[in-house]
Each structure stands twice: as C-alpha cells, then as structure tokens.
C-alpha cells in the first residue's frame, strides 16, 4: 500500500511544509494548480493551516507527501470535498522540479492514490479538474485511467485570457478492470 516502483506516498510531516511550499511556488506549479490569483503562498500561512487541520482527530480526507524511494520530496497529492453520500471525491496533485517531470512519477503517485481511495476509503468515483493548456497533466491522467467527461468553457482567467477547464473522472469498476490489465504491476 502507498508504495510503487519509483515513488511512495507518506504522511505530510510539519517539516515537509517548507519544501512543499517551495515546490508549490514554482511557476510551473503555480500556473497549473489552482484557479485563484497565482501568487506564491508563505510557509507561515501553510503551517497555520496544517496545525488547524491536525487538531481534528478523525480526518475525512487523505493527503500525502510524494517522495522518491530515496526520500526526496517531489510533491503532494490528496483528496478534497469528499462526498460520502455520493461516494465521490475530488483529487489534486502536484510534482515539482523539471528533473522530476515527464518520468511517470506523477502517474504512479496518482495510481497509488486511486488505489487508496478505492480500496481503503470505500469510494466509487474520483474526479478532477485540469486546465485545458496543461497537456502533460491531461496525458498523465488519461494514463492513470481518467476519462474526460466535459469541457467547462472559459472558467479560468490566466495570462490575459479565458481558458477552458477539463473535467475528468474514473469509476471504481473501470479502475478494477484496468488493474487486472497492463497496469497490474504498476502499484
């Protein structure tokens, strides 16, 4: 569980935060991750947020630091807005450092996260939103088994104009079929 060939997912330690924020403030991540004003976040704000979350004994979301097997932090992934009644959650992920991109690390981390969501959290649908210009991410999500289920027109203003946002999803039964096939040994 939570360990693949190249990366593993582990608990987010307070000590990870400065490195995670450094990664999240990389322009490549800042531009692609969120739809709000793309200004860098301070470590201080994130630590406060982390402490607030840590007070809750029962966590209903899963969040992980993504590390390479040698322990190097390369990003973060997790669930948000989990809707237990609808058995659905929304995922997010980011990988930092140009040397870590295009190596399949993100896809592998996403597959580990999906495995955790379907097999441990007992959910049956996972969705995500990705900006239309983030072609590398779209390819990675498709590799992980997500299907585009719609294009939300002009929902993001960035770099001077409006862009579409793609909505993608994967259902548990699709994941199960996929894991029996070619991806069976990826996780």
């Amino acid at each position: 569980m939570l360990r693949g060939k190249n990366v593993r997912l582990r608990v987010i330690e307070k000590e990870d935060i400065p490195e995670l924020i450094r990664i999240r403030n990389e322009e490549e991540v800042l531009i692609h991750l969120r739809s709000n004003i793309p200004q860098p976040t301070s470590v201080h704000a994130e630590v406060l947020d982390y402490e607030e979350k840590s007070k809750k004994k029962h966590k209903d979301e899963a969040e992980f630091t993504i590390v390479k097997l040698d322990g190097t932090i390369i990003g973060k992934c997790g669930t948000m807005h989990t809707r237990w009644k609808d058995s659905e959650t929304t995922v997010h992920i980011y990988i930092g450092g140009s040397e870590n991109r295009g190596q399949g690390f993100g896809t592998e981390a996403m597959l580990l996260l999906l495995d955790f969501i379907f097999e441990q959290m007992n959910l049956r649908r996972v969705k995500l939103y990705v900006f239309s210009f983030n072609e590398r991410a779209i390819k990675s999500y498709e590799k992980a088994g997500f299907k585009v289920e719609g294009i939300l027109r002009q929902e993001l203003f960035r770099n001077g104009k409006y862009y579409d946002v793609m909505q993608m999803s994967i259902l548990k039964h699709e994941y199960d079929v996929q894991m029996k096939g070619a991806f069976g040994d990826a996780v």
């Binding site: 609808d86 058995s87 049956r124 719609g150 294009i151 939300l152 027109r153 909505q167 999803s169």
Partner: peptide, 16 residues
Amino acid sequence: KVEAIGREAVFRFGGY
C-alpha cells in the same frame, strides 16, 4: 449548454 456529464455522480432514489 450541457458542458460536462458527471458520470454516476449523484446517489438518489436508491441508485447513482
């Protein structure tokens, strides 16, 4: 216009 169809995204009346 319909822009996206969230597949089986809502549980109601005993089904998705």
